[in-house]
């Protein structure tokens, strides 16, 4: 699946997009994998105000299923235009 980063998170990730294995069951699994593969991202992703969208739909704070998810976006607080 595609993992997308925006704003500050993009700088920390070092790219706008990474490809993750399709095997993760939940968002928590993906977060663990990102923490292992991208040092420095773990804290930033857990910060208040960072929102997550799965296939372009915002999801809540709880652990969410990633089954059949194609795209996960991590979004820091939106600045407006």
């Amino acid at each position: 699946m595609r993992i997308l980063f925006f704003g500050r998170l993009r700088d920390l990730a070092g790219s706008s997009e990474v490809q993750a294995p399709d095997t993760f069951e939940t968002l928590a699994d993906l977060r663990r994998w990102l923490a292992e593969t991208h040092a420095g991202l773990e804290q930033a992703l857990a910060q208040r105000g960072v929102r997550v969208a799965i296939d372009k739909a915002i999801v809540g704070n709880g652990d969410v299923s990633l089954r059949s998810a194609k795209e996960v976006a991590f979004m820091p607080p939106m600045s407006g235009g």
């Binding site: 704003g7 500050r8 979004m75 600045s79 407006g80 235009g81």
Partner: peptide
């Protein structure tokens, strides 16, 4: 709404330094 809540992420350059911007209390 566009100025405060639209899904954009803004970076400004001042004196050659770039910084990410978040909504102000006034917004």
């Amino acid at each position: 709404w566009l100025k405060t809540d639209a899904p954009f992420w803004k970076r400004e350059w001042r004196d050659g330094e770039a910084a990410w911007i978040e909504p102000t209390a006034e917004d």
